[in-house]
Design a protein around this nucleic acid. Sequence first.
RNA 1: GCUCGUAUAGUGUAGUGGCCCAUCAUAAAGGACUCUCAUUCCUUUGACCCGGGUUCAAAUCCCGGUACGAGCACCA
Length: 485
Amino acid sequence: MEEREKQVKREGLPALNNAEKGNVVLRFAPNPNGPLSFGHARGITINGEYAKEYDGELILRFDDTDTTVKPPLLEAYDTIQKEAEWLLGFKPHRVVIASDRMAEYYRHVEMMLDGEFGYVCQCSADDFREFRVGKTNCPCRDNNVNLNRDLWAKMLDGTFQPGDCVVRVKTDMTLKNPALRDWPALRIQDTISNPHPREEIGSKYRVWPLLDFQSAVEDFLQGVTHIIRGKDLMDSTRKQTLLYQHFGWKYPETMYWGRVKVHEWGGFSTSQMRKDIESGKFTGWADPRLPTIAGLSGTGIQAAALRNFWKELGVTQKDIAVPLATLYSHNIKVIDDDAPRISFIRNPVELTMVGFDEDEIKVPRHPNNQNLGVRKINLTSKTIFIERDDLEFSQLRLKEFGDFEINDNTATFVAKERTDKRRIVHWASKDSCSDAKLVAVSDGKLTSVEGKIEANDFTNGTPVQLERIGYGIISDSNIITYTHD
RNA sequence: GCUCGUAUAGUGUAGUGGCCCAUCAUAAAGGACUCUCAUUCCUUUGACCCGGGUUCAAAUCCCGGUACGAGCACCA
């Protein structure tokens, strides 16, 4: 009998269509109305992985063209760049800010008006909805070039107010898909009351492009070859393809992913988080309860774990719900080999040692990785801490130390070697530890346990493993944040 | 309502006509190792939405149904 050949799972991400190594340009385009969240990480890591794989370029583009509904946040420009770099493991090759590119967008509007595939529409949103539903042309569609140019000038000079008119792309009002019928490309915003947060932009422009137009023009100008984004933007692709046809451009290759939910988190939107932070419900964008990149990295989730997580989910269009355990398993794989072991004693009980004379012992920092060296523990005062819960047994083995007999706050030394199968517990020496707090999130709530942390000189952000508790990260000299078990 | 999209073990994912009594991971259960309730290793459990059709052959193609999701914004 011949062995049946076992099939193998494809490694990594699926191949890009029509991609030539060294000739691939991708982009990730967030609205900087808040720092990056968990969901954004998908866009960054997937596009970034493809850029790496194909020797291509990744553009980080700030789509900051709405000053009213989802206004940008000034500090987000900076934090997003830092967070993107952290996630990617490299700097984006180009950074583009839409609000710096208004002249280009205006230039293309004029091309559109002159080419008669765009028009200024003075119908109200409600009126136009009827045309859209009824598949009938709006009267403004017949404006000639001169009229459109005149109206456009009046949009720019302030004659028209927000809501008075928009620029539309001429498609076809009888198109099957209602979303595509003469879609709006630019509108007027009241940037006096709602100035753009970037000082150099402020109230400089009143007419702003909408996503479908801005993104389409910018993708062309930047030479984007592949767009990988959420499937909620599928109709956006169709709208933009129609615009590309007018301009005579070739639309990039596209790929889409579906919605991802994490079981343990409810729905978090950037705007909602922003409100909750302002109201004091959360301490800030880095609040460990929030599914932001800052929150996740603050609780000890590593960038590589996030990358592996998103790579594993791939680019399927299914809507999925993933348990946090999946992310945690990736994180353990990333950190365990190098995470120093360290004792944290919850609810510490002070014990005096009897029968042990040495003033220092050495304990390995990691059971399997000797490169991490040893920790020297000072025992001069012969005073140690163990967890109250471990007092349940009177015969205990202090891990990597010795067997002890516990009686009334006294720990009597029995032997260095193991003499029996007594319970092994972690401990800390009074001379080599300090007061600390273990902060954790459970069921969306923040909890904090006081205790003793073994002396260490790890810098903030070092992932560690708290013996018998789980993985954590050093957040401050006396604060450890729990990551997962 | 119109339009678009997706459906593989508990959760994800691979597989685009025969190597598939279906891949891998995760989860759960059991076990080995271990001076941590960690890591590592082993074993077990467990899936092609339903109904037709095409074909010698269908998870894979076609049609219908069902379920879920998205778009139809002067948000991104």
